[in-house]
Amino acid sequence: MLLAAAGALAGCGTSGETGSARVGGACESPGVTAGNIRLGLLFPDSGSAQSLFGSFRAGVDARLGVANSAGGVHGRQVTYDWEDDASDPRTNLAGATALVDRGAFAILESTSASSGSAEFLHDKGIPVAGTSLEEPWTIYDNMFSYSNLLSESGSVSTYGDFVAAHGGHSAVMVVSQYTETSLDFAAELTASLKAAGIQVVATVDATAPINLEGLGHKIKDSGADVLVGTVTGSSFGQAVLAARGAQANLQVILSPAGYDQRILNVFKAIIAGAYFVADFLPFETGRPAHRQFLAAMSRYAPETQPATQQAALSGWISTDIMLRGLQVASDCPTRASLISALRAVRGYTADGLLTQPIDFRADFGKLTRCLAFVQVNPDGTRFTPVDPLPRCGQPVAR
């Protein structure tokens, strides 16, 4: 499996590595021994983004469990050290530095704070695979993701087209004013809505602790019939609760984050009818790759319940990308040869999990145009995929 961030820019692999690195029969690349390849894992095990990305590690464990039980890569077991970036860019840089200093060959990463270490990892020529929710993933050619959802260069019409098709006319945007990713996503969604003729008439803050009554009045007083949130699933659920309590007249309720059974377990019928976005085909479609993932989660990460979590599947795909790169990079890989091998991959679909095939060279820096939408059923117990699946839009300017 591979991620959606492609294209070869000159200057990657600044460590000067090319091809194989073998001296006297032994590989010389950091983290590579005769029987082991050691990666680094960087994610928020604490902090404000923990609820969004915390299960990423479980997906990593599941994918590595499957790979290592089948003999690893070129006879080597793949393992990792990990660091908690605490949802903070400065801690993210400190964690990345520590992992590289301890000899990590490459990095698996899922966080909203990757901007902290992106330049450092690029300058060191370290391959990175993970979840793309910040602009560095569309800039640095050593970073690979199965989708790109944020870029300062523009947006996609997919969100706006969806809202317009479901009867929306004007929107209120729910953000976290102290989270850069939330504000960037809000700007991107605003551009998408505008392209579909839907104006964002108000922006309201849902940073914890949330005054539900005050937030509800702001949403209702905006007069908007569309509620869009660029906050965590928990904060989005509370915003919907506030809007319901104020009897706001909403036609469409939409969040690009929060497609997770746990949000249903907490909010139940409160979020009935709400729409969520996935950058992969939903679990409810039951593809063979979904079943493989769930079986591996049950065996190698049984503590993660429910297993159908967006971050966990991202961990699975991100790790599969890394394994694929290691497989084709040569039996004695360098960091540069891994990056080059991944950039050469075309038509990648993650065994049918992704919403669009990826060409890692041609698609580098481009936003994901094709997304899947799901709706919470009337009793708030499950998600139902919304046709067409996926829905594909076009690039639009911010």
Rank of each mutant, 00 (worst) to 15 (best):
T138P: 10
G347F: 05
F162G: 01
A242R: 00
R102F: 08
G167L: 00
C27I: 13
F56P: 06
H166Q: 02
P288S: 04
R76F: 09
L2R: 11
G19A: 04
V231H: 07
N142L: 08
L99K: 01
V66C: 09
G216W: 08
E303T: 14
I210F: 00
V32N: 09
D320K: 12
S151V: 03
V163R: 04
K124M: 11
G286S: 12
F373D: 01
A208G: 08
R343T: 10
N36E: 15
I126D: 02
A34L: 11
I198V: 08
K194L: 14
A67P: 02
G154Y: 00
G245D: 07
M297S: 05
A187T: 14
A206R: 00
A10N: 14
T230N: 05
D61L: 11
V386H: 09
G125S: 00
G168P: 09
Q375V: 00
R244G: 03
S234W: 12
G167V: 07
S87F: 05
P378H: 03
A195V: 10
R391S: 11
Q356F: 12
S255T: 08
K366P: 06
Q327F: 13
L313Y: 01
S234N: 13
S117R: 02
L9G: 15
N249S: 15
G233E: 06
K218T: 13
S330I: 13
R22V: 15
A289K: 08
G223W: 06
